[in-house]
Amino acid sequence: MYDVERFGIINTGNPKHADILLITGAINEQSKSVVENLYNQMPDPKVVVAIGACALSGGVFAECYNIMGGVDKAIPVDVYVPGCACKPENIINGVVQALSVLEEKHNKKKNKSL
């Protein structure tokens, strides 16, 4: 029921093999460089999906001294999936939306190179 592979998606732990980055949790100073590093290791075209309230804006931790905010403080985000915690169906929905964004980016890249 929660199978994303029926859309042809598999989970891989390696940014170099990935098109979509699913990211949860807020960004603090230590994780900022890590997230940037991983984002840069993904080949274009790529999509970022921020999942959960903390990834969107910091959630309940937004006022903390060490939290800089949501994921978009470190890398550009394409799809936001709200919730705390998110429902699985919403995550799948977000991923499917990300697929269409990916398609868009891909077409843009193809048109640019033509």
Binding site: K16, S33, V34
Partner: peptide
């Protein structure tokens, strides 16, 4: 790019 080291 750099090799994968878990972002570190």
């Amino acid at each position: 790019v750099a090799p994968y080291l878990g972002g570190a």
